[in-house]
Amino acid sequence: MNDPQRFEYVVRLGDNALVLGQRLGEWIGNGPELEEEMAMGNFALDYIGQARLFLSYAAELEGAGRDEDQLAFLRDQIDFRNVLLLEQPNGDFGQTIARQFFFESYYVLFLEALTASSDKRLAEVAARGLKESAYHLRHATQWMVRLGDGTEESHQRIQQSVDELWRFTGEMFSGDEIDRWAVDNGVGPDPATLRPAWDTRVNEVLQTATLTRPDNDWMHTGGKQGRHTEHLGYLLTEMQFLQRAYPGAAW
């Protein structure tokens, strides 16, 4: 492989999309309302679509004869590079919304920066994803406010989800040598630079939703390097079952 950093960078993007897409897909058949279930399914497909673009590109970069499916279904947990936030369980509807809100608030900023990437393939995917995520964020923001400023129970439950997931938000802004490589080569932004705009947006919405911003700033990291929480293994077991049990099975 002549471009290992680029491969690593693209796999991270692909895994974020894949794992979140899988999580959102888990709502199919379980949504609180038919309409919201459809919305979750749409979002899931948006992400699976992105994951395909990223991972097929990664497979080309790797040049080892693997394709997007093999990267998605035949890698083990330690080879996954998604941030920890996205592998956290759906929980109740509010917890999914809180996860979605934290991530999309970051992701629209990230994709916006990625549209200016020196890597044209990534810039194209970013332009497409940006429109999708702008809508996802609108949806999540509305629900944050509805639940936070809703009933006593909805307020208490969404606050609990915010508190629970907060410790995973910092990883999105923590860079390592791969991010430095991306910045040096004009491929992607320094994640830390996205933080102020994220803080502004999150503070604004939390306030509108009458929610309290957690003051705990100790953050879990490691997902980008392949050190995951216990939840990813279960997700992969379900997602990869078919290809593991019936190698090469196709529609």
């Binding site: 309302e33 309409e35 919201e36 949806h139 509305q142």
Partner: peptide, 20 residues
């Protein structure tokens, strides 16, 4: 037709159900 809590949510649901 569809169910929604208010007009704003109805627009989003309509987008997700009828313009996919």
């Amino acid at each position: 037709s569809l169910h929604a809590a208010d007009e704003v949510m109805a627009l989003d649901h309509a987008r997700d159900l009828y313009t996919r």
